[in-house]
Design a protein around this nucleic acid. Structure first.
Lengths: 332, 332
DNA sequence: CTGTTAGCGCTTTCAC
DNA sequence: GTGAAAGCGCTAACAG
């Protein structure tokens, strides 16, 4: 049932009366081996069910053909999509992926980085946990940071700022002028870029939005939706879908409706955005492109940092402000 | 900036004029080394920033301290939660996790299994992709299958059947008697167990539910919700949350309301279940427990297959059937 | 207690 | 074209 010891290159060599070097060459098509012999060797390898020993090869060559992927929290939406894209791209290049989860903890992130390097990964792709800075230069393997354009050493990211601008333009075109911005965590560079993009447009349209900082969670969104004076706003732009959805839930409980009483936008286009009611207007990132570029960078196929465009996805949570909805009615 | 060659056990040995064996012993606290020397060695290792070479150790000991985790589709909800639980448990044991995604494709699943074994994982945890059977005995490393109690070789699973029973009892207690069951894919053992559990209770209450098979997706649920003759049912029990939510969306578009016109239940307790309106009554699995048991099994800490209980989570999508809602009104 | 000696399975000069 | 030999860095026997 279970094999004894898996057969080695030596076994093949002995059975064919050749040297291990020749077998190695034949199997990898590297050094010069006569076609006839090579064929014979490959056949023998086949029948023996030979599988190269990964550890031995790694020890000898110094390459493990393994990359490390470090995410802040694989349980949170969005990160699995990244992981999948990276895994797929890695597999295609014959690389395996060692996964690490920082669980939002900078200390664990540190530990994981060290651990993965110690395990001999050839490269590291890191999505830094909020509020941390990773210096790629300080490691002995290539490291790609996926975060925001503003992050030091960032290699691949979506254009969060432009995404924010798109949201803001959309809202302004609809005629909104009393803006609430759910800005997310103050220490998140991604959130900051999104918010700055929004504010840039709002301000240049003569609007001074109200900013509220909080965690990027459903719960935080609910708290804000429950406590804020909604009459003061015609629209709310959130830096995260989760925040927007939490907000929507709370606001609905208070008897307000979206988008009639207040328009709402999110950011990320999670699966959730499509199933809440009303479906959420939000911004979609091209995670696949970001993932592939990060991987290409660490494998040396690409050599520059890149920022990828985002798309505004307009759904039913945004509409023109209704003239008679709230206290002030300067709209229209 | 970047290191030259990382320092080896030999370097420490030379600098201290001892043998590599002694250094190895001291560093791992294994063989007998005088406390004083051990201390000195550890200090030197520290200042040199010594990190053991993983490949060399793996080659020598035949253990990589790495396990492989193979999931059907990491992009789908639920699997990330598993992955996180397993990663956490693995880390705690000093194991790293190599992740593989079958992308729902049996051929890729096969490939991944082989690949991971070739890469020298010490064990494999596999959540089989729908419609496939994995024979743990046929591999050279310990393998834990996470699927359903009915799966050959299953090592850890939730009690899907009992979960199905809980849903059915809940619906019957509320007074429902015209049942629609969204049964999910016919070739899924998990779905089958859930549905069988439901039917068991329904039938013994004298009710013959209507079964509809489909993919386990939101879209499939929507299609069913759009096409079925809803007047014939007082309640709908879905084998997956995604199915239930898709169904809810379609049904709402047709002007029916949940739970007034029809009660609805899901299965899995995805994050979604809490944010749809109305929040979904569903069944929650203890993924953490399942994950830990699977890992314990492959590490030899546990030696038997185990099935874990599930919880019915009652929310607002289920209620007593209203007497005047549909065509027939035998309820109450 | 500590050192010597063998390799683990593979790749890589370097001879032949 | 092919083979011999030398390790990669580590650990496990076995001596001393």
């Amino acid at each position: 049932m279970s094999e004894t010891r898996p057969s080695s290159i030596r076994e093949i060599a002995d059975r064919l009366g050749v040297s291990t070097a020749t077998v190695s060459n034949a199997l990898r098509g590297k050094g010069r081996v006569s076609p006839a012999l090579a064929l014979q060797i490959r056949a023998e390898a086949e029948t023996l069910g030979y599988v190269p020993d990964h550890a031995a090869r790694a020890l000898r060559t110094g390459k493990s053909n393994t990359i490390g992927l470090l995410v802040p929290n694989i349980g949170q939406p969005l990160f699995p999509a990244f992981a999948q894209a990276i895994e797929r791209a890695a597999k295609q290049r014959g690389l395996a992926v060692l996964i690490g989860d920082s669980e939002g903890d900078p200390a664990q992130q540190d530990f994981e980085i060290r651990n993965m390097i110690a395990r001999g990964v050839d490269a590291l792709i890191i999505i830094p946990t909020r509020g941390t800075t990773v210096m790629p230069k300080s490691f002995s393997v290539p490291v790609a940071i996926i975060d925001s354009a503003a992050t030091a050493g960032n290699i691949a990211a979506s254009d969060h700022r432009e995404g924010g601008r798109k949201v803001a333009r959309h809202l302004i075109e609809l005629g909104h002028d009393k803006l609430l911005v759910l800005a997310g965590p103050e220490n998140s560079l991604v959130a900051r870029e999104r918010v700055e993009g929004m504010c840039e447009i709002f301000v240049s349209a003569g609007i001074q939005p109200t900013l509220k900082y909080s965690d990027a969670t459903l719960e935080a969104g609910s708290v804000l939706g429950r406590e804020l004076d909604l009459g003061r706003f015609t629209a709310c732009a959130a830096a995260y879908d989760a925040l927007a959805i939490g907000f929507a839930l709370a606001v609905r409980d208070r008897g307000y409706s979206i988008p009639q009483d207040i328009s709402l936008t999110g950011f990320d286009d999670l699966m959730w955005a499509q199933i809440v009611s009303p479906p959420l207007t939000t911004v979609r990132q091209d995670l696949e492109a970001v993932a592939i570029h990060a991987l290409s960078f660490v494998t040396g196929e690409a050599d520059a940092s890149r920022i990828f465009p985002t798309d505004l996805v307009v759904r039913q949570s945004t509409a023109r402000p209704s003239a008679f909805s709230q206290g002030d009615k300067n709209a229209e």
